[in-house]
Design a protein around this nucleic acid. Structure first.
Lengths: 130, 130
DNA sequence: TTGACATATTCCTGTATAGGAATATATTTG
DNA sequence: CAAATATATTCCTATACAGGAATATGTCAA
């Protein structure tokens, strides 16, 4: 079996970074396809294809007005992702104090090259490690 | 260009439902591969492959003990997903809050028509913080 | 060493991309 | 009608899967 289609669900749809960009762009305000093309610096057909995927999983809504079609993000469709990821929340290492501390330290330290040892729960991953 | 590799980032990795299942399963307790195989009802090679993807993006950690290898979820790696989806939170239609709001409004203005409900811009959900 | 157990890797294959190029469809205007 | 504008679709191709089958690697015990 190949990978599930991008239109299977919101999880698959938002795996593509351009689609995430589009969703963020369309969050505050609806936009025509052309506006999206200009903002995203993508070819128009690519944008249309991404919009099709997003629409198919309910992540955006479309409204035609004359020749233009205005899209906007349907934030509710993102909610399941937020809820699923939220089930892991209580296992995060909340180091707010620590992050703050590091920020302050950095602010006071002049071009410090230290702080390399402590990882403030950074989201980055490392490879090849057991 | 084909789709980005599943090992590109956590977004791509969790697009596969079996991998999400595994992450949930490994959240509370570390488990050996064999335990995962039994719990997920998948073939062992499939599980190993999924684990490889998850490990490569930092979503799980591995610890060898004799012949067995115990995996556990690294919840911190899910945090970026939760944060990204969280940026859409203020545009959700909170049913509960809205119902409550409507009820209260109705209570105070029994005959009123609909108040300008053009945008549920606030009513941030409370989160625990410690 | 041999054998048993635990896990990982390789090989195979049908399928679904994402982007580019070209073209089609829809809508308004002259 | 034709032309212009706005958007969608089709065709193409290299690539990356996910699962199954077979095999390889690693580790312990006798």
């Amino acid at each position: 079996m190949p990978r599930a289609a991008t239109t299977t669900d919101a999880f698959n749809a938002v795996a593509e970074p351009r689609r995430r960009d589009i969703l963020s762009y369309l969050l505050l305000q609806e936009r025509s396809v052309n506006e999206i093309v200009l903002a995203m610096a993508l070819e128009q057909p690519s944008v249309s294809k991404h919009l099709r995927v997003l629409k198919e999983v309910g992540l955006v809504n479309a409204r035609r007005e004359g020749r233009q079609i205005f899209y906007r993000t349907n934030a509710d469709a993102i909610r399941p992702l937020h809820e699923w990821t939220g089930t892991f929340e209580r296992f995060w290492s909340h180091q707010l104090a620590r992050v703050k501390q590091l920020a302050e330290a950095k602010e006071q330290a002049p071009a410090g090259k230290d702080a390399g040892a402590s990882r403030p729960a950074d989201s980055k991953q490392e490879k090849k490690e057991s």
